[in-house]
Design a protein around this nucleic acid. Structure first.
Lengths: 193, 193
DNA sequence: CGCGTAATTCATCAACTGATGAATTATAAC
DNA sequence: GTTATAATTCATCAGTTGATGAATTACGCG
């Protein structure tokens, strides 16, 4: 009787939904603790369908990691406009990326997995190197340019970890404008030397 | 013939060595990716011996996490001495803890596991809350005391992640004194308001 | 309608995990 | 010396994981 298996009527783009669910779970729990069965269950789908669409878990993960951030954007941000406000522009871009769920989830997944998975760590490190440290470093002037660029990165990573990952109060619920007010000067100090 | 099983001659304090190995592996790979078999192998010992000494993996982990840091120490650090140098004292204590392997490893393990494991995350969050944010918050003066305390925490966590966990250059190899020079003013700004 | 193709589930595999209880051996106490 | 005790390994379990191949069903095109 009850036809359990076989194609389901209607319900198009299950693949996209699987990806969305995977992204959410990877962001919440990281790579290792997210199982294909979890993803399947959360998507209301057999786990093997996940394997079917994305071959293996790693490939699904790498697809889920794709982050909509162009390094060039950061460079423009630094060069354009008032140099004495570069720090403010950077923290604003950062918050804009992290406050929006569609961009936050891949970032969270990346961060969360980078600390336990070596591949993800190298991915994030090289991403940060190419997307932040290097461009920022070349734009800066004065001594210790690259060190200062990584210091900017350290404050931003720390904010991401404390606010979005560990959810430490009251930082986690603080108004973004308050964060801009406090952190912009820090970044500005690192940027200006 | 070859007596494989049974007690080994000599070789005292295997338990301590197992713990040391576990600490190292937990720090390197985090909780989930460190298997009891890995620990046993690295300690040159049967995996079941690990279970025997520490009952279960979680208990071993919690023992490995014990971190030699008294919250009161931080309070004294803030209150004692020149208030305009409190930031410098904080970053110096922080670096002292992280530069020494015996204290770095539990901290790294804690940090690494906190991002993927919920129990470890709550552990770290409550630890940070009780050991850093709250004491620091009560000592501070002016508006947004607690937010500023967590901002201090965010810069420190970011430094730990970027330097010791992701190993982003040139921050990872930078001379501690350089870090003090750059970061002390940041912390001072958060502390002083 | 009939047929190919894509979507989906089912059953199942081998590998690995943490844990347990029994068995074996060295050390310490008497 | 005998004996209790602690140290250590072995064999083994049940659970979970990612992956695969076959089977079942719906859709689209002719």
């Amino acid at each position: 009787m009850s036809p359990r298996s076989g194609r389901r009527p209607g319900s198009e783009d299950t693949k996209a939904e699987i990806l969305a669910v995977a992204r959410r779970l990877f962001a919440q729990r990281g790579y290792r603790e997210t199982t294909l069965r979890d993803i399947g269950a959360a998507a209301g789908v057999d786990p093997s369908l996940v394997s079917h669409y994305f071959q293996c878990k790693e490939r699904l993960f790498s697809v889920a990691l794709e982050v909509p951030l162009v390094p060039a954007e950061i460079l423009d941000l630094l060069r354009g406009g008032d140099p004495s406000r570069a720090g403010e522009r950077v923290i604003r871009l950062f918050l804009r990326l992290w406050e929006g769920p569609p961009t936050r989830e891949p970032l969270l997944a990346m961060l969360r997995s980078a600390v336990s998975d070596d591949r993800a760590r190298e991915l994030l490190a090289s991403f940060l190197g190419a997307a932040v440290v290097e461009p920022v470093g070349t734009v800066l002037e004065g001594a210790e340019r690259e060190l200062r660029a990584t210091l900017v990165g350290s404050q931003l990573v720390g904010l991401a970890v404390a606010r979005y990952l560990l959810c430490i109060e009251p930082l986690a619920s603080a108004d973004p404008e308050r964060l801009v007010a406090w952190i912009a000067p820090t970044l500005q100090a690192y940027l200006a030397g």
